Amino acid sequence: MRQDHPLVPLAGGGYLLSRAADVEAAFTDRRLGNAPSRFSVLAEKNRGQSVAADLCANIPPFLDMPRHADLRRPLSAAFHATFAGSADWLGALAEEELDGQAAEFDVVADFAGPFAARAMARFLGLAADAELMRRSSAALFRLFAPITSRSDLAQADADLARARRAMTPVAGGAGLIAAMAETGAMTDQEIADNAILVLADGIENIEAAVALVLLTLERVPQLRDDWLGGRLGTAEMLPEALRLNSPAQIIPRVVRDGHDRHGIRLEVGTPLFLALGSANLDPDAFDGPEKFDATRADPGRYVFGRGRHSCIGAPLARAMIAAALEALRQRGVGLAGQADRVRYHRRFGHRWPEALPVRLEGARAAG
Rank of each mutant, 00 (worst) to 15 (best):
L335G: 06
A87G: 14
E131W: 09
R31W: 10
V255W: 01
R243Y: 07
G258T: 13
N280P: 06
P247H: 14
A25E: 15
F79R: 05
V51E: 11
G175Q: 03
A178D: 10
S246K: 04
D22G: 01
L276W: 00
T183F: 04
L140V: 15
I250E: 12
G91A: 02
F304S: 07
A208S: 13
P114F: 13
D260M: 14
A103W: 14
A235D: 12
E182M: 11
S151T: 14
D284F: 00
L214G: 09
R359F: 05
R318Y: 13
L217N: 04
A297W: 14
E354V: 11
D129Q: 08
I59Y: 10
R118D: 00
R219M: 03
A163W: 09
N46D: 08
H68P: 03
A145G: 09
R243K: 00
F115H: 14
P114Y: 08
A171D: 14
G258Q: 15
H345Y: 15
K45P: 07
S76V: 13
G337E: 14
S137N: 10
A355D: 14
A121T: 04
L197D: 02
M167Q: 06
T148V: 15
A119D: 04
R318E: 12
I312S: 04
A77F: 07
A324N: 04
A35F: 08
R347W: 15
L55E: 06
A192K: 09
L160I: 13
L356I: 10
A26K: 01
F27N: 09
G91L: 11
G334R: 15
A21T: 09
D260N: 11
A103V: 13
V23P: 01
R118S: 00
D225M: 07
P36Y: 10
R359L: 06
V198Y: 05
R224L: 13
V255T: 05
R261Q: 11
P357E: 08
I206K: 00
A20M: 06
I264L: 07
V255A: 01
D225T: 11
G33H: 04
F348T: 10
L223H: 14
G334D: 15
E96Y: 03
R30E: 10
H262L: 08
V170F: 00
